[in-house]
Amino acid sequence: MVTTTSPARQRFETGGLWLLLTAGAAVMFFPIYWMFATAIRPRDEIFSGAVNLLPTGWVWGNFTAALSRMPFLDWTWNSLIIAIAAVVITVSLNLLCGYAFAKFRFAGRDILFIGVLSALMIPIQVIIVPLFLVVADLGLLNSYWGVILPRAAEAFGIFMVRQFMVSIPDELLEAARLDGASELTIFLKVVLPLSKPIIAVLIIFTFMWRWNDFVLPLVILTDQEMYTVQLGLNLLKGQYNTEWTDIMAIALLSLAPMLVIFVFFQRQLIQGIAGTGLK
């Protein structure tokens, strides 16, 4: 905002705001920090009842111990394959679909669009059993496809793409059509290059959703060799005898890919969302 107040007062205000925001950030960060502090704590101190906000020992061995006790790397590999394949498929399909909703007029469009939107609202627990039956009948249980395909038509993604593409000028498309370009060429050569920001957003969100997916993989992937990171974490937590250092170490490792992605793509994410015409 543009301001009319004096520079001194403004500096004072900014300082106060900064302190407030930093204090808030400290609170927000504490749970993550506490995971870390728990993960590297000596095992026998976990339940000692002593309050030590700072790490009392740096037992990095807890990480390697946790990794040697469970096939975390296999889980990560499964999660990566699922998330990456899902990003490629979901983002492509959503771009195609969102483009059609944004730039064409056709019979049944509004009804279809509302249908898509309402699909976003169904809690998966309501349809999980029928969904399982469908996946089982298609022979996709315990396969990567069994968790990728059911979520490929991501309502939220279609919605975002549509909102973004509405703002692409029609004139550009018309000009390409007059040059004799096919509809697919127009999409690939004209629309996609303009859509980079929204593609970045979709990639980040889709990766995040699939990486964090839980309820669907839980019923589809029953073979432990197919487990994802989230299923592994759930298995750990569900074992009778809770080992908090292991759980926190694994939970922290499970966050790592998302952290890396967010730190590197933060700017693209915000610009991309800004580009969806949220104004």
Binding site: I128, V129, F132, L133, V135, A136, D137, L141, L218, V219, T222, D223, Q224, N234, L235, K237, G238, Q239, Y240
Partner: peptide, 21 residues
């Protein structure tokens, strides 16, 4: 051997029975 957390065991089993799997 499929090890399932006890909290989700019967849910999993019943769902798989419903799907004949």
């Amino acid at each position: 051997l499929d090890v399932i957390p006890f909290g989700q065991f019967y849910q999993q089993l019943d769902t798989r029975l419903a799907g004949r799997q």
